[in-house]
Amino acid sequence: DVEPGKFYKGVVTRIEKYGAFINLNEQVRGLLRPRDMISLRAENLNVGDEIIVQAIDVRPEKREIDFKYIP
């Protein structure tokens, strides 16, 4: 289970104008929005990159997770 405030290692699987999709594993995926990329620009991300993200909002009923990148 993903808990708000905890840090996780994930892999960038898709990049859109509104953010990057980060997979923690095959069943868990969330969104890293540009406003939550402190000191990281979306254009510096590539599909396949491994990054550490913090879960900031977890909505299990919608199967949605928002992440924040903190260097």
Rank of each mutant, 00 (worst) to 15 (best):
D1N: 14
D1T: 14
D1K: 14
V2T: 03
V2E: 02
V2A: 03
V2M: 04
E3T: 13
E3G: 03
E3H: 13
P4V: 15
P4F: 08
P4S: 09
P4M: 12
G5F: 07
G5Y: 07
G5A: 02
G5K: 03
G5W: 06
K6S: 06
K6A: 08
K6D: 02
K6N: 08
F7L: 08
Y8W: 02
Y8R: 00
Y8E: 00
Y8N: 00
Y8F: 03
K9N: 05
K9Q: 06
K9T: 08
K9A: 07
K9G: 01
K9Y: 09
G10Y: 03
V11L: 09
V11E: 03
V11G: 01
V12Y: 00
T13F: 04
T13H: 04
R14N: 04
R14F: 06
R14G: 07
R14P: 00
R14T: 04
I15G: 00
I15F: 03
I15N: 01
I15S: 01
I15A: 01
I15K: 06
E16W: 13
E16K: 07
K17V: 12
K17I: 11
K17Y: 11
K17N: 09
Y18G: 06
Y18N: 06
G19M: 08
G19Q: 06
G19E: 05
G19P: 01
A20G: 01
A20N: 01
F21W: 15
F21A: 02
F21K: 01
I22G: 00
N23E: 12
N23F: 09
N23Y: 12
N23L: 11
N23C: 13
N23A: 14
N23P: 00
N23H: 12
L24P: 00
L24F: 05
L24Y: 01
L24R: 00
N25Y: 08
N25K: 06
N25V: 06
N25W: 10
N25C: 10
N25A: 08
N25G: 10
N25M: 06
N25P: 03
E26V: 12
E26A: 14
E26K: 15
E26N: 14
E26H: 14
E26R: 13
Q27F: 15
Q27P: 03
Q27I: 11
Q27C: 14
Q27D: 13
V28P: 02
V28Y: 08
V28R: 02
V28C: 09
R29N: 08
R29E: 09
R29V: 14
R29F: 13
G30N: 02
G30I: 11
G30P: 03
L31T: 06
L31Y: 05
L31E: 04
L31P: 03
L31F: 10
L32Q: 02
L32A: 02
L32E: 03
L32N: 03
R33V: 08
R33S: 06
R33N: 05
R33A: 06
R33H: 06
P34A: 14
R35W: 09
R35C: 12
D36M: 07
D36A: 05
D36V: 07
D36W: 09
D36Q: 07
D36S: 05
D36Y: 09
D36G: 07
M37C: 09
M37K: 02
M37I: 07
M37W: 06
M37Y: 06
M37V: 07
I38P: 08
I38S: 11
I38D: 10
I38G: 15
I38E: 11
S39A: 13
S39I: 10
S39K: 12
S39L: 13
S39T: 11
L40R: 04
L40T: 06
R41Q: 11
R41Y: 10
R41E: 10
A42S: 11
A42M: 15
A42I: 15
E43P: 08
E43Q: 11
E43D: 13
E43R: 10
E43N: 12
E43S: 13
E43T: 10
E43C: 13
N44I: 10
N44A: 13
N44H: 14
N44M: 14
L45D: 00
L45P: 01
N46G: 09
N46F: 12
N46Q: 15
N46R: 15
N46K: 15
V47C: 06
V47E: 05
V47R: 01
G48W: 04
G48F: 03
G48N: 03
D49S: 06
D49M: 14
D49I: 05
E50D: 08
E50H: 13
I51H: 00
I51E: 00
I51V: 08
I52P: 01
I52M: 09
I52L: 11
I52C: 15
I52K: 03
V53T: 00
V53G: 00
Q54C: 12
A55W: 04
A55D: 01
A55H: 02
A55F: 05
I56P: 01
I56S: 05
I56C: 08
I56W: 08
I56M: 11
I56F: 09
I56T: 08
I56G: 04
I56K: 09
D57K: 14
D57G: 14
D57E: 14
V58H: 05
V58C: 09
V58G: 05
V58Y: 09
V58K: 03
R59N: 07
R59Q: 03
R59L: 03
R59E: 03
E61L: 09
E61T: 08
K62Q: 11
R63Q: 13
R63W: 09
R63A: 12
R63C: 14
R63S: 11
E64G: 06
E64H: 11
E64A: 05
E64D: 04
I65A: 05
I65Q: 04
D66I: 15
D66P: 02
D66H: 11
D66M: 13
F67I: 04
F67V: 04
F67T: 03
F67S: 04
F67P: 02
K68S: 09
K68Y: 07
Y69W: 10
Y69R: 02
Y69V: 05
I70M: 09
I70C: 10
I70S: 10
I70Y: 12
I70D: 12
I70A: 10
P71V: 09
P71G: 14
P71L: 08
P71D: 11
P71E: 11
P71C: 15
